[in-house]
Amino acid sequence: MALVSVPSLMQDLTAGQDQVNIEGETIREIILNFDKVFPGVKDRLCDGDRIKPFIAVYIGSELSQAGMRELVSPDSEIHFVPAISGG
């Protein structure tokens, strides 16, 4: 199972847990399964079937560019962080 790091501002949904193990082979499956365990997660992270524009997803140390389609392996570490841009 992938290890999902729970953003501190979403830990009200996970009873304070900062990391959870979630099944899934894509970010979409991870979020849907995460939401089954902790309802409300998907609404925080997604607009419909897309990651919200101001949220970025890291798989390990790499910024994901494939959104919900991004592939995830069982040993992946997943981070949802505020998106940023450069100048």
Binding site: S5, Y58, S61, E62, E77
Partner: peptide
């Protein structure tokens, strides 16, 4: 350095 955790979570390459 490589392998340390960045302040927002991801690991440094």
């Amino acid at each position: 350095k490589e392998g340390d955790r960045r302040c927002d979570g991801p690991i440094y390459p």
